[in-house]
Design a binder for these strands. Structure first.
Length: 104
DNA sequence: GATCTGACCACCG
DNA sequence: CCGGTGGCCAGAT
């Protein structure tokens, strides 16, 4: 694994339960402010048995970005809702309430 | 080793 | 407000 991926996983592990973070923020914390794409890749190929709460990572609008992967969106949404995150009619979580601010 | 692709985002126009 | 473009990372062909 590259150092970047390691940092990404570490940052994602820091996300508190019931909170969400976006790819951009995670990338920034990992040292690459514009590497959101790399974050998506890293999370899409997570090592089996990893303790990384990937489901707490959503897109900039607070919506599920895993729609591209069949079945994933439903799964992720269920996990987040079980942690207390609420999605509105647009399928977006209230960033103001659940958004994780690094350093909190 | 070049090119494409993918759970994306910021920056212009 | 919407659309195009560039930029980042890692794996696949």
């Amino acid at each position: 694994m590259s150092a970047f991926s390691e940092r990404v996983y570490d940052c994602v592990r820091r996300i508190p339960k019931g909170r969400i973070a976006n790819y951009g923020s995670v990338a920034a914390l990992a040292g690459e402010p514009r590497a959101a794409r790399g974050v998506g890749y890293a999370l899409s190929h997570l090592p089996s048995g990893s303790d990384v709460p990937w489901w707490r990572v959503v897109n900039r609008r607070g919506a599920i970005s895993t729609s591209r992967v069949s079945g994933m969106a439903q799964w992720q949404r269920a996990l987040l809702e079980s942690e207390g995150v609420v999605f509105d009619d647009a399928g977006e979580a209230s960033w103001r309430r659940f958004g994780w601010v690094p350093g909190e």
